[in-house]
Simulated assay, not measured.
Amino acid sequence: MRNISDIIEKYIKEILDSSDIIKLKRSELAEKFQCVPSQINYVLKTRFSIERGYVVESKRGGGGYIQVIKVRPVTDAELIDEMIGLISYKVTENMAESIIVHLLEEDVISEREARLMLSAIHSLVLEMDIPLRDEMRANLLKAMLRSLTYSR
């Protein structure tokens, strides 16, 4: 059985299929899924990040809402360039995974390419202290993304 985060994510993505911009009320979503509002925050933060191709804006107050925007790049090369731009001199494993998942969801890379990329950036493969590991991961990921740009 899938967990509540997966169910909430699926629901929001289904709405986004019909429109690239949606406005949601956190309290209404929490009520619909019988969860606490912080669960909605968690899903939005972890599953609808810029690395995954979304912009989430929040308006607080009585009439507050959450706006989720699906960013649609014009070309694969443009998307790859945007992802390279998100990577600074270091990158966490979670952020790197989000970038790879986004490229997979946009059909820029195949499932096989995604698995290879995920394997290369995994913490167990990069056995070194954290600051150096995140720098190495950033360099590897940027190199892989650049090679995708030239091979297409």
Score class of each variant (00 low, 15 high):
residue 24 L to R: 15
residue 55 V to M: 14
residue 16 L to Y: 04
residue 121 I to C: 01
residue 138 A to T: 08
residue 112 R to I: 12
residue 130 I to K: 14
residue 77 A to C: 01
residue 10 K to Y: 05
residue 44 L to I: 06
residue 71 V to E: 11
residue 123 S to D: 14
residue 105 E to Q: 08
residue 112 R to L: 10
residue 52 R to L: 11
residue 44 L to G: 03
residue 101 V to D: 06
residue 78 E to W: 04
residue 38 S to W: 13
residue 32 K to Q: 14
residue 87 I to K: 05
residue 119 S to W: 04
residue 3 N to M: 04
residue 92 T to Y: 04
residue 123 S to V: 13
residue 79 L to I: 09
residue 86 L to P: 02
residue 142 K to R: 10
residue 108 V to E: 11
residue 88 S to K: 13
residue 61 G to N: 15
residue 59 K to P: 02
residue 42 Y to K: 14
residue 87 I to D: 06
residue 42 Y to L: 11
residue 38 S to E: 15
residue 38 S to I: 15
residue 23 K to Q: 15
residue 37 P to W: 10
residue 7 I to W: 01
residue 14 E to P: 00
residue 127 E to G: 00
residue 151 S to Y: 06
residue 136 M to K: 08
residue 21 I to L: 12
residue 87 I to C: 07
residue 133 R to A: 14
residue 37 P to C: 09
residue 45 K to H: 09
residue 2 R to Y: 10
residue 48 F to A: 01
residue 100 I to L: 09
residue 53 G to Q: 03
residue 28 E to Y: 12
residue 40 I to E: 05
residue 49 S to A: 11
residue 136 M to P: 00
residue 63 G to Q: 13
residue 104 L to G: 01
residue 80 I to A: 05
residue 71 V to D: 04
residue 12 I to D: 05
residue 2 R to G: 01
residue 70 K to A: 08
residue 91 V to R: 06
residue 84 I to H: 08
residue 66 I to S: 08
residue 91 V to W: 05
residue 113 E to A: 12
residue 124 L to R: 13
residue 146 R to L: 10
residue 136 M to F: 07
residue 120 A to K: 03
residue 41 N to W: 02
residue 97 E to I: 09
residue 82 E to L: 11
residue 75 T to R: 08
residue 10 K to P: 00
residue 29 L to C: 11
residue 27 S to L: 14
residue 121 I to W: 00
residue 36 V to L: 14
residue 105 E to S: 04
residue 125 V to Y: 10
residue 115 R to H: 06
residue 127 E to L: 09
residue 116 L to K: 11
residue 3 N to Y: 07
residue 82 E to Y: 09
residue 137 R to N: 10
residue 147 S to W: 04
residue 95 M to G: 00
residue 143 A to T: 09
residue 19 S to M: 07
residue 27 S to A: 15
residue 113 E to T: 12
residue 13 K to M: 08
residue 45 K to F: 06
residue 49 S to D: 06
residue 59 K to W: 13
residue 108 V to A: 15
residue 49 S to H: 06
residue 143 A to H: 07
residue 24 L to Q: 15
residue 79 L to S: 10
residue 82 E to D: 11
residue 30 A to N: 12
residue 9 E to Q: 08
residue 99 I to S: 05
residue 142 K to D: 01
residue 79 L to V: 07
residue 39 Q to G: 03
residue 149 T to V: 09
residue 72 R to P: 00
residue 24 L to S: 15
residue 56 V to Y: 05
residue 53 G to M: 03
residue 88 S to Y: 04
residue 34 Q to C: 04
residue 67 Q to C: 15
residue 54 Y to K: 07
residue 53 G to T: 03
residue 148 L to D: 00
residue 77 A to Q: 07
residue 48 F to R: 01
residue 57 E to A: 13
residue 123 S to Y: 11
residue 82 E to S: 08
residue 47 R to T: 01
residue 107 D to P: 01
residue 35 C to M: 06
residue 88 S to F: 03
residue 28 E to Q: 15
residue 23 K to D: 14
residue 133 R to V: 03
residue 52 R to E: 07
residue 102 H to G: 01
